[in-house]
Design a protein around this nucleic acid. Structure first.
Lengths: 115, 115
DNA sequence: AAATAATTTTCACTTAAAGTGAAAAAAATG
DNA sequence: CATTTTTTTCACTTTAAGTGAAAATTATTT
């Protein structure tokens, strides 16, 4: 679709391609979710910009995530956006389930044993 | 605060402790975010339930995540809620930045070299 | 069992984030 | 300088999240 040589594309074209209003892309910039290159004031979106935005849209539309969550996920990978993983979200739920299952087992055991 | 022996607590107590309306806890159940034990119809929240809910509230209030996002995060760790990581969210952004930085460097280089 | 109290459920409303239309303002271009 | 393009601002719409109030259901007490 877009040129491999990473030429830059104007906002209207990108908005159309993504199926959103160009206002939406301005809106995303407020949250530093995307930062198109500027020559003068005019914005030019690179192929990388576009791919990233496609991914964001998928997260939001297909999965129902919100803007903030995506930003939180990025931040949680640490300031440098690197190796740390939002492990705790899942671990916390995992622990929750584990405790729950243990407790439930214990309860059904108690019932069977008549304690 | 709550008994270590994992006794179960009624919804009103838990709601008060978390600082939310009990309706909110019913609401969360619609999304299977929490599943308190039932005796008859009455709900009993375990210590694990409460800790998990505290964590969820923090994610939502302190960080601004939405319900769906938390559920997506859990799901993305795979059906079994185990080892896979929502790496792609961050990787996608990382790649985006890397490409961006490369491109920007290239551009400033081109400027300096006058190509 | 009837009366009372406690829980759950439903309905409808409020609030805030996400998104967009329209028009004003600013810049670029012919 | 007039016209077109792009950005910005303001105000509105829509939807998720949350909650109040009351109806419905269940449990408890007398």
């Amino acid at each position: 679709m877009f040129d491999k040589k990473d030429k830059s594309y104007p906002i209207e074209l990108v908005a159309e391609f993504l199926g959103v209003n160009s206002r939406t892309l301005y809106y995303y910039e407020k949250f530093t979710l995307v930062c198109p290159q500027r020559r003068g004031r005019k914005r030019y979106y690179s192929k990388a910009d576009i791919e990233w935005l496609e991914f964001v849209r998928e997260m939001m539309y297909e999965q129902g995530m919100n803007l903030r969550s995506i930003i939180v996920l990025i931040r949680r990978r640490d300031q440098v956006i690197m190796n740390r993983c939002p492990e705790d979200v899942v671990n916390c739920f995992k622990n929750y389930l584990v405790k729950k299952v243990n407790k439930d087992l214990q309860i059904s055991f108690e019932k069977k044993e008549g304690r």
